[in-house]
Amino acid sequence: MTTVAAYRRPPISGVNTDAETPVMTVYPSIACTGLGRLHGKLYESMPVKLFGVKLSHWLFPLPSAPGAIMLYFYLKLFGVRYTVTNRSVQVWKSLGNRMLKQVSLNEIDDIAIAQDPGQVFYRAADLQLLNAAGEVILRLEGIPFPETFRNLILETRDARRQTDASHAVIAARHS
């Protein structure tokens, strides 16, 4: 006699409770480094406008472009990437499969945005993931368009909490 394992449908349609699924991956801009922030400060140093564009945008980006491009490629090879999954926020090496840090979405209470002066040019900032006590549990540096990534993390966290609550209600029904 052979037994056939019955297929168990997930309690919530389309939600796989067993697997950790990536939602979004972001690579930091060169504004995550001191040299990149130095470039950014230089690019924003002269607020006087010429034809609607800051004078420093006319003068400095082109001559400093080779250094910025080298820094960009260095980060792609030896930097990090940030991944939000349905369960956590993770820091990985840019290349390869080595995870450096991980924070569960349930540990995140709020996310603060901290923008250094050298990050303004790149429209980037650091995200500080805070726990319930207000302590920084993880810092994501040089995130381009940080408000968008912050909202994604918070919405994913809320979805995780709602899913967990739904599973608890369903489990209580079967008891």
Rank of each mutant, 00 (worst) to 15 (best):
M1F: 10
T3L: 09
V4K: 12
R9C: 00
G14Q: 08
V15H: 10
T17W: 04
A19E: 14
E20I: 14
T21N: 02
M24L: 15
T25Q: 09
T25C: 07
P28L: 09
S29A: 08
I30F: 05
T33R: 07
G34S: 11
G34F: 10
L35M: 14
L35D: 00
L38C: 12
L38E: 06
G40T: 11
Y43G: 06
S45G: 05
M46L: 15
P47I: 06
L50I: 15
G52V: 02
V53P: 01
V53L: 11
K54M: 12
K54C: 02
L59D: 01
F60D: 09
L62T: 13
P63R: 06
P66F: 11
G67C: 09
Y72C: 05
F73A: 07
K76M: 15
F78Y: 12
G79N: 07
V80A: 09
Y82V: 06
T85H: 09
R87F: 09
S88E: 12
W92A: 00
S94W: 04
N97M: 10
R98K: 15
R98A: 05
M99C: 13
K101E: 14
Q102C: 14
V103A: 10
N106E: 12
E107H: 07
I108F: 01
D109G: 02
I111G: 09
I111Y: 04
A114E: 13
F121D: 08
A125G: 00
L127H: 04
L127S: 06
L129K: 06
N131E: 08
A133C: 01
V136Q: 11
I137C: 06
L140D: 07
E141A: 15
G142H: 07
G142W: 06
I143F: 05
P146H: 08
E147F: 08
T148I: 14
F149Q: 06
N151L: 12
I153E: 12
E155G: 01
T156G: 10
R160P: 04
R160N: 14
R161H: 10
R161F: 01
D164N: 15
A165Y: 07
S166I: 00
V169W: 10
A171Y: 02
A171R: 14
H174A: 13
S175N: 12
